[in-house]
Design a protein around this nucleic acid. Structure first.
Lengths: 95, 95
DNA sequence: GCAATATTTAGATGATTGTCTAAATATATC
DNA sequence: GATATATTTAGACAATCATCTAAATATTGC
């Protein structure tokens, strides 16, 4: 897991919003584009960053490209954040 | 909680390392400085970003300034990240 | 109060970032 | 296969960022 890429990806509010939307299910680039006030090119850039962080996967379906969450990396991220907190570390006390 | 500030703060590896160190207990600016290969000025900038995100608190003690984790915000952050994941949301299924 | 120590502020610089427009690529339909 | 639709790539630009050096501020000890 590319820790740095993941945190970098989360630093942008639009990208976080995209992830939030993808919770509810996969969406095509166009459908996501309809939800945000940015050009397709900008969106495409955000997708690239999210993909580089492995937070999303994409798959061509017909003439559109469908994006979906990569939940396993999202869970890695959770562990990573939890690890930043002293008290809350459940099992595996130290490391 | 200033969500954007928190994510922005976490986007830098040095700042994450600082947080990690503060897990083990409070440290003065100088002590932290000894652990990283950057100038005091740069460190000071990182502290400012962390403070703006409310991730750390500081307190002057004698001639040095001691930094410590603000664990409550760290826990808010966890909830925030967990909220980004579809399946794992424990209670409060929707929102 | 002056010198030493600890930290921050000011200002500058190069790198990265988010965004745009315009052009390129890929797929489907007729 | 040409046209329309969907998305990405290329290139540019202004804003933000991490970092540095030098100067300023705050605190302690003599």
């Amino acid at each position: 897991m590319k820790q740095q890429e993941v945190f970098r990806a989360l630093a942008d509010p639009t990208r976080r919003a995209i992830l939030k939307r993808l919770q509810k299910g996969s969406l095509s680039a166009g459908e996501i584009g309809a939800l945000f006030d940015v050009t397709g090119a900008t969106l495409s850039h955000h997708f690239a960053v999210l993909k580089q962080a492995d937070l999303v996967r994409n798959e061509r379906r017909g003439r559109s490209i469908v994006y979906s969450l990569n939940t396993s990396v999202m869970e890695d991220l959770t562990r990573l954040v939890l690890d930043l907190i002293p008290a809350t570390r459940g099992r595996g006390e130290d490391k």
